[in-house]
Design a binder for these strands. Sequence first.
DNA 1: GGCCGCGTTAGTGTATACAAAGACGGACGG
DNA 2: CCGTCCGTCTTTGTATACACTAACGCGGCC
Lengths: 210, 210
Amino acid sequence: MKASERAYAILLDDIQCGRLPAGAVISEVEQATRIGVSRTPMREAIGRLIGAGLVVQQSPRVTVVADIDAEDIRDLFDVRRALEETAVRLASQRADRALFAALADEFAGAHPGVDADAYYELIARFDAAVDAAVANAHLVSALRTLRTHLVRVRRMARDNPSRLAQSVAEHRLIASAIAAGDADLAAHATHVHLHNALTTILESLQEEPS
Amino acid sequence: MKASERAYAILLDDIQCGRLPAGAVISEVEQATRIGVSRTPMREAIGRLIGAGLVVQQSPRVTVVADIDAEDIRDLFDVRRALEETAVRLASQRADRALFAALADEFAGAHPGVDADAYYELIARFDAAVDAAVANAHLVSALRTLRTHLVRVRRMARDNPSRLAQSVAEHRLIASAIAAGDADLAAHATHVHLHNALTTILESLQEEPS
DNA sequence: GGCCGCGTTAGTGTATACAAAGACGGACGG
DNA sequence: CCGTCCGTCTTTGTATACACTAACGCGGCC
């Protein structure tokens, strides 16, 4: 494996998991010695993170982990609505219907209160199925960069059990709509889902703005 | 100016203007000596182009300028519809209405048949005004990477005069809708505009698939 | 005592040297 | 004559050394 990829993967994980919190300064030499690579691959890794928008050059001399405030989250969800509604519309036209019918059944039988990790894994599989169905490299690429930011957002605002239960029903409806080839329903259900998700996140942020 | 930025700007321009056509191999040393920089900043420039999707690593040993076929263009326009409809919706809610009323007037008085460059410059100003109005860094960032690809598409399919004239009317309607704060009209007019643009491009590509 | 200026230092930007890996070509064997 | 294997060579990946710049601190001067 390339040293630059290792450095990128480690730094990305550190940022997404909060080990490198917002505002933390990213020094090339410091991170390079920590990861155990040279400055050259570390610069490449940091460059990719800058390109993704997870770190920003605060001044020509100091780069820091990008901050995320409520306004950022609203902005991210504007983009997310645009891209995911488009994605589920395209998936509704092109998807293997049996696959999404099966996913809808899995959502019907999901119990996030019992095993949250299994539920998150199911959502990841659902997202991957949508990505495969849309068969649009540019759209999937945009969604991927979006998700790198959303991982941090999700971490900032811990889901509560009632929200998770509601989320199951919303995902089930979206999967069913795609299985039925109903693009409008899939898009509108996604809109509702993202509206509820954003509302919950902003509420939980107001309670504990850590 | 940083050498890596110079290299990136030159390479980007070379790709967008067709001097480096699709499929052209990008050798680090060759480009570095041509531009007059070292391999290190050249690597950074190529890395950014890979991140933007303008060049791809065909094999672990050879990177080439990304190809654009009709399918790619359709995919790009799916993303473009999603992002630009969202952008004009947000602009309709937040924009300085007088500014867009003035832009609508400029479109009303535009004659692309007489001075095409002035018309393209007007469109660029319109796009910049929309970007400023949406005030959403993530959305604008996604639009920017999209536009780097669209420059190549526009170059592949030369606009014909009648299409340009129609485009003026479409832009004028979008600007008027934003000025009136009519988000639905702005979004639908944008949808129509992009549908017509895509149709024209695909037609001109079928005539001369150079 | 405060402010301005110079020196030092830390840290990034760039160049280059070295290493590794894959591809091409030539030669040898079947 | 063809296929395969080995060697070389090109190209990328990585490390390190050097340069430049900006910021911080210290000292002198006002």
